[in-house]
Amino acid sequence: MAESEVLHAEHRLEYPYARSTGPIIGAFLTALREGRFVGATGSEGKVIVPPTEYDPLTGDDVGELVEVGPGGVIDSWAWVSHPLRKHPLQVPFAWALVRLDGADTAMLHAVAAPGPEALATGARVTAKFCPEAERVGSMADLESFVLEGGAA
């Protein structure tokens, strides 16, 4: 059968549920809206960022929330030369696992940089938030991380 003879139809599958984010994830997203980061204290005093209601390794309940960041180091990174349509940045950028100052785990986000040669594991970055009026309490309130010293 030739390609032109095959019938095609657009179909959109959605699960349009509203979810409550709860006391830990909600606190993190609220802090993002305020332009800051919080983590949760897990087992053996480790600070989990982004925080979950349980320690991701032991399953124990987490304790108090603590302030972390806004600077941190790159644990790993991947260079995207051709951003996809839903990516947070529409110019070449890096995905990175960033371990914020004061945190023992890393968070995934974009790092803006002029090119892959400007980046390295262990490089220091800092948060660049969206303008306050545009923040809604989501991961997108953080526009990206940028290299400390302003290389981007």
Partner: peptide, 16 residues
């Protein structure tokens, strides 16, 4: 909450 809203594709995650 933390990952899907950023739309990190499977190739990028594996590149990390």
């Amino acid at each position: 909450y933390y990952e899907a809203p950023l739309w990190p594709d499977i190739v990028s995650l594996n590149a990390l």
